[in-house]
Design a binder for these strands. Structure first.
Lengths: 160, 160
DNA sequence: AAAAACCCTGTAGTCGCTACAGGGTCAAGG
DNA sequence: CCTTGACCCTGTAGCGACTACAGGGTTTTT
């Protein structure tokens, strides 16, 4: 089948399929006389595998590692387990930080009465006071110290 | 103070500071005769404000909107509240999806006994079976349908 | 004086996609 | 047969929030 059919079968964009091939996750398919990619059922299964792992929020690098392990039956199951464990740890860490963040935002949200102008806005007061070194309601001292090491919005794939 | 001092005072990389300036979040500072940026206390406060909002996982665009509101005391407090509300919604949505993901990974993790080789690995069996169209333990039918619309790892800043 | 640290602008890269640009191929309809 | 629209190709660029150079100038430390 052609790339559009593969994409439709797996619910994946054509560009994403080409991206995975470029990344080495999907093997290069054969080509027709017109240069079009011709995919087999095995490609669909590989793509489904990848998408399944992506649904588990695994990085493409980790998925590549899993695929390597699949290709080597003598490798230990524990290596697979390690990848899943790593992912679980990351998920839990992110859950913790998001729970804290939710609490912080709720505190902050409670400061706004909706009827005032920003000159009297409790939220902005809090944010501005915090930027001037005063304690703020949305961060405890410990959490405030931690927030100095912002990791950005990417969560799982923090570079450091 | 120079950019390195500002960065040290706020716990921010020099490149990030320049990035914020390029993004228009930080006002351009004056320059010395040598072309070096010379920052005032107000810059430090603005930077702290930005970092505080980043700690609340707000996007730079939203932070820019907040700064605009700060600059216009006649604007309504409810506009600020709206930004925080939007952020709260995003945090909660992300929490929900991560909880589901944690459950899925736990199910999957339970399949690995650690002593086997990947040829008999329960995790891989699950992932491979799922890629071949069989039901899997880590996704209920409903969740599996949803996972076809993978949003990627960026969570908050999903384009669609 | 030399070396190290700091600064500058501009560019490129990370992650996982997504969206073109420019051009070729195929199938359906007039 | 011709036209049109859908599909395909490769290559490049962009998103968000940074981070890391490259190449060169300035300041501080040894």
């Amino acid at each position: 089948m052609r790339i559009g059919e593969l994409g439709a079968a797996a619910g994946v964009e054509v560009e994403t399929i080409r991206y995975y091939e470029k990344r080495g996750l999907l093997p290069e398919p054969g080509r027709g006389a017109n240069g079009y990619r011709m995919y087999a059922q095995t490609h669909l299964e590989r793509l489904a595998f990848i998408r399944h792992c992506r649904a588990l929020d695994m990085s493409l690098d980790d998925i590549g590692r899993l695929l390597e392990l699949t290709a080597h039956p003598e490798a230990e199951c524990r290596d697979v387990g390690r990848l899943i464990d790593g992912q679980l740890i990351r998920v839990r860490e992110r859950l913790n930080s998001l729970h804290a963040l939710e609490r912080q935002l709720q505190f902050l949200r409670a400061r706004c009465s909706s009827r005032e102008q920003t000159g009297n806005c409790g939220i902005l007061h809090e944010l501005i006071a915090a930027s001037q070194g005063e304690p703020c309601v949305c961060h405890s001292t410990e959490e405030k110290a931690k927030s100095r090491r912002i990791c950005g919005s990417t969560g799982f794939y923090c570079k450091r």
